[in-house]
Computed example of a mutant assay.
Amino acid sequence: MKVLLYFEGEKILAKSGIGRALDHQKRALSEVGIEYTLDSDCTDYDILHINTYGINSHNMVNKAKKMGKKVIYHAHSTEEDFRNSFIGSNQISPLVKKYLVSLYSKADYLITPTPYSKDLLEGYGITVPIVSISNGIDLDRFKHSVDKEEKFREYFNIKPEQKVIICVGLYFERKGIIDFVELAEKFPEYRFIWFGHTPMYSIPKAIRTIVKDEHPENVEFPGYIKGDIIEGAYSAADLFFFPSYEETEGIVILEALASKQQVLVRDIPVYQGWLVDKENCYMGKNNKEFTRLIEELVEKKIPDTSLAGYKVAKEKSIEHIGHELKDVYEKVLKNESIQNKEQIHQKN
């Protein structure tokens, strides 16, 4: 079995969750001994596993179909998580949905990160078989490291007594960036750091203004930072606060859980079945609840759930994901084998 992992615009999307999903797929397939290629000109593959949605992605699907190859579409995106993101996203989201449905419907199988996103896709009327498989997490990368934590503290000049709350995400309203800044105003004694970057020309003026100018002194937007500093931040911070309104999974949550960090998220449907309030994380519905929970969690007035959260991350380790992907690949190829036998039988 040989798989072509196709990822259009890899450099552009490298800083996003989808970009990290590709890295996880490569690791996962290596873990279970499945041969893969990233060469889009390759022709001796069995399955096209495609992650992106541009014109080249559309062409790759058509090319694979003409060659008689099996196509698995990794459905990272939905209309719901496209809204409240880029300039004009809400206006064109119905067209995006129509386009995604047309692409996804060409596949032999769909993989999507959570049961929630699976339900959304089925609600679009897509009849292609769909399975939910987490994007996975590299547990080794997020092992506790005193050295990484020290690099994080040095980079941001964090004093021993300072409390730090972090978030990781694109500069989207959907991600809860407005709430993050509003809540920071209520806690001037804490430092709030939002990691991540989105080109300013692509986001609405209101969000550009917040990131560039109109935010409290205790809020920082250092941009996209990778490696030891962000990995140290995950474990050294006092809280990972992710107020996103819509996700298909949220790889950054898995990264925080793998770092044994205390996690606070918005209570939204995507977490049903794997995150449980007061058990492996804390959840809030609005800024009033977040205000109370941030203070109680940072000051350790309520029980810590980080160890239970780490167990969630372990269940979604890259090795586990590799076996789940392998099962889908084998199922798709087995179905092809059955169809070929049926065709031979009909001819006879």
Rank of each mutant, 00 (worst) to 15 (best):
V3W: 00
L5D: 08
K11H: 03
L13S: 05
A14C: 10
D23Q: 11
K26F: 01
R27C: 10
R27I: 13
S30G: 14
E31C: 11
E31Q: 13
T37G: 05
C42Q: 11
D44N: 06
I50L: 13
I50W: 12
N51D: 10
N51M: 09
K65C: 03
K65I: 13
M67H: 05
V71A: 05
H76R: 06
E79G: 12
I87L: 15
N90C: 11
S93F: 10
V96L: 13
S102D: 05
Y104C: 03
A107C: 00
Y109H: 15
T114N: 10
T114L: 10
P115L: 08
P115C: 11
Y116G: 07
S117M: 10
L120G: 02
G123A: 08
Y124N: 09
I126M: 10
S132V: 09
S134W: 03
I137N: 04
D138K: 09
L139A: 06
L139T: 10
K143F: 10
K143A: 14
D147Y: 14
E149Q: 14
E154F: 07
N157I: 00
N157T: 10
P160I: 06
P160C: 05
Q162V: 01
K163R: 10
C167M: 12
G176A: 12
D179L: 06
F180M: 05
L183W: 03
E185T: 11
E189F: 04
G196Q: 06
H197Y: 14
T198G: 04
Y201L: 13
I203Q: 07
I203K: 11
A206I: 15
I207V: 14
R208L: 01
T209P: 06
T209K: 15
P216L: 02
P216Y: 00
V219S: 09
F221H: 05
E231S: 08
G232M: 05
A233L: 13
S235F: 06
D238H: 03
D238C: 02
F241V: 02
P243S: 08
E246Q: 13
E249C: 00
L254A: 01
E255P: 11
E255Y: 07
Q261L: 01
Q261P: 07
Q262L: 08
V265P: 05
V270N: 03
G273L: 06
D277Y: 11
Y282S: 01
M283W: 08
N287R: 06
E296G: 07
K311H: 08
S317N: 05
I318Y: 01
H320P: 06
L325N: 06
K326T: 02
E330G: 03
E342M: 15
I344G: 00
I344Q: 12
H345Q: 15
